[in-house]
Design a protein around this nucleic acid. Sequence first.
DNA 1: TAAAATCTAGTTGTTACCTCA
DNA 2: CGTGAGGTAACAACTAGATTT
Length: 228
Amino acid sequence: MAVFPINSSNLDLSISMPGFASSSTRPPLMKVRICVVRELDMNRVPTTGEAEEEWAVAPSAEEEEEESCINNGGTKPRKKLRLSTDQSRLLEESFRLNHTLNPKQKEALAMELKLKPRQVEVWFQNRRARSKLKQTEMECEYLKRCFGSLTEQNHRLQRELEELRAIKVAPSAIVSCHDRQPPLSTSTITMCPRCERITSSKAAIAAATKPSKVVTSILKLHQPSQAC
DNA sequence: TAAAATCTAGTTGTTACCTCA
DNA sequence: CGTGAGGTAACAACTAGATTT
């Protein structure tokens, strides 16, 4: 499954798993919502009357420094930084190239983005966490599907086993595959008393029930002439 | 071996959207 | 129809503890 980026702030995960479509034509609803949110909160110019600081986007490193001083010493609550679209895009591009940054790269990116290296570092940490969470969710979904199909298969096999047990015939018809017996007739249902496996001919089973492909393949694997 | 740097996992606080009375 | 409260999701920033250099 591939999650297509709608804009720079979206997760860019390309995880291939059996059972999942390799691509989707539409992004998940959640992504659309994120996109809308971004469009609104990042790009809209604050109208008169709206608190300007509510729309504060990515203050400069100097401003951040100033703010952190206030926060460290004073009582002013921390303000949530909103990265600009360009900043997010550049960070996403960097993340695509490398999921971790060395100190030089971090410094350079921070300079370019007019952010503090610490902010870049935090962004990458959070981005890795989101990436991992997304992957875990997808793996979880995949395992759920596996569980479902295996459960179904298990039930089917159980039913077939019961059917086979039901057609288990009188002891006179039971012949061990371990004994050296003359060739079986096509109407004989046999069961090995040692390994408890039915080793009948297809013709006999077909007369009694309608075996599925699974049964047929089991029979193929366990012919009377073969040792258990 | 100690210390600094960096990581992960979990949490907190802010912001914006949605629903509903 | 407009509005305010409550719920929720996203995400930047933080903390603690583990790991690496």
